[in-house]
Amino acid sequence: MPETIKWLGSEAPTEVRIEGYQEIKNVKDAPDVEYYVPGHRTCAGCGPALAYRLTALASGKNTIFAGPTGCMYVANTSYLCGPWAVPWIHTQITNGGAVISGIEASYKAMIRKKKYDGEFPNIICFAGDGGSADIGLQALSGCMYRGHDVLFICYDNESYANTGIQTSPMTPYGAHTTFTPPGPVVPEGKKTFPKDLLKMVAAGHPAVKYLATASIAYPVDLMNKVRKALAHKGPTFMHIHAPCPKGWAFESSKTLDIGKLAVDTGMWTLYEIVNGQVKVNYAPRRRKPVAEYVQAQGRFGHLTPEMTERLQAFVDSKLAELGLLVPIPAV
């Protein structure tokens, strides 16, 4: 097989080259025309809203967004208005992948049949973790499998947040949600470990040649990945870590700090898979213990040291797959 997925061990990172990709060198070099503008009512410190803003900055004017039900539908479109300066369509929480498939098929047909004389647009589904990894998984898989020229983004705030913080398949072990309240019978709250969504998409969908994780705490990296994904012809997938002050119980001024801490502790990793080759984008030299991340958020407030150890062990095993299992320095 010419293109197998290799989970990075000791191999050197692959150079990413995608035709037509315009790299943003640094924050100052970022475009200054906004397509996700003020006028919504997301919470103070909202990670997903920042992810949206950065994505729209990178994708630019010739873009269509589809928004499955979730925070980025409810909080953005209340009162029949919305913050987008590009076309946006609501989809059900179930069917974001299918709706963008139809939009893409429409543009292919209309351009071929000379019913549309504009350029083929960037088509992006911006779905929450429920609309991607849970109830939206079937439509996501169908879309990625069929090879549509679209970008599917999962903005991951690790819960069903707009309904009042309920567990999703992306909620970490040990988190307190309103469906996983800790108590004498269930002391850890959330008992299961999350799905590995990027791996699922990468392993099972041969048409997908570009996938990336990103974090709102690394905005230039995020925007460049959006651009690479859009420059690539065919289905692409991004999984963006988007901390949620309300759901995770931290101060709304700390969103970026929590995002960075996730990467520093290995709770989140930044990497790409291009043509089956894994490239880790950021590897902290001195890894911080998961306990530090846990202690910074109210949702983990009930965890015992033993539970935190279980979480640490899970993180270690994931990092080992990526070749990132560097020692944690003694405190």
Binding site: I89, S101, G102, I103, A105, S106, A139
Partner: peptide, 9 residues
């Protein structure tokens, strides 16, 4: 869902 998206476009 596919035809909804296509019709919308």
């Amino acid at each position: 869902s596919v035809v909804l998206g296509a019709s919308a476009a």
